Simulated assay, not measured.
Amino acid sequence: MSDRAKTVLLHGGLLALLFALQFMLPAYHHGNLARVMVLASYAIGFNVLFGYTGLLSLGHAMFFAAGMYGMGLAVQVFDAAPALALVAGAGAGLVVSGVVGMLALRTAGVAFMIVTLMFAQAGYLTILYFGSYTRGDEGFVIQQAQRILWGIDLSDPTNRYFAAFALFASCLLITLWLVRAPFGKVLIAIRENEERAMMLGYDVFAHKLAAVIVSGTIAAMAGAVYGLLFGYVGASFASVQYSIFPLLWVLLGGAGTILGPFIGTLFMFYLIDLSSGITTAYMLVAGVALVALTLFAPQGLAGAVRKRIWRGLP
Results as ranks from 00 to 15, higher is better:
V186K: 12
L187A: 10
I188P: 04
I188Y: 03
A189W: 15
I190P: 06
I190V: 04
I190E: 01
R191E: 07
R191V: 02
N193K: 11
N193Y: 02
E194S: 03
E194Y: 09
E194F: 05
E194T: 00
E195K: 10
R196M: 14
M198C: 13
M198Q: 15
M199Y: 13
M199A: 15
M199I: 12
L200K: 08
G201V: 10
G201P: 14
G201N: 13
Y202Q: 11
D203L: 13
V204T: 04
F205K: 10
A206T: 03
A206V: 09
H207F: 13
K208T: 09
L209Y: 09
L209H: 12
L209A: 05
L209I: 05
A210W: 04
A210C: 11
A211D: 07
V212H: 02
V212D: 03
V212L: 09
I213W: 02
T217M: 03
T217W: 02
I218A: 05
I218C: 09
I218G: 07
I218Y: 07
A220N: 03
A220F: 09
A220T: 01
A220K: 04
A220D: 02
A224I: 12
Y226M: 13
Y226F: 13
G227F: 01
L228K: 11
L228F: 09
L229H: 08
L229E: 01
F230G: 02
F230D: 06
F230Y: 12
Y232W: 10
Y232D: 13
V233T: 14
G234E: 02
G234M: 06
G234L: 00
A235P: 15
S236V: 06
S236Q: 10
A238V: 07
A238S: 11
A238D: 07
A238F: 09
S239K: 00
S239C: 00
S239Y: 07
V240Q: 08
V240T: 10
Q241A: 15
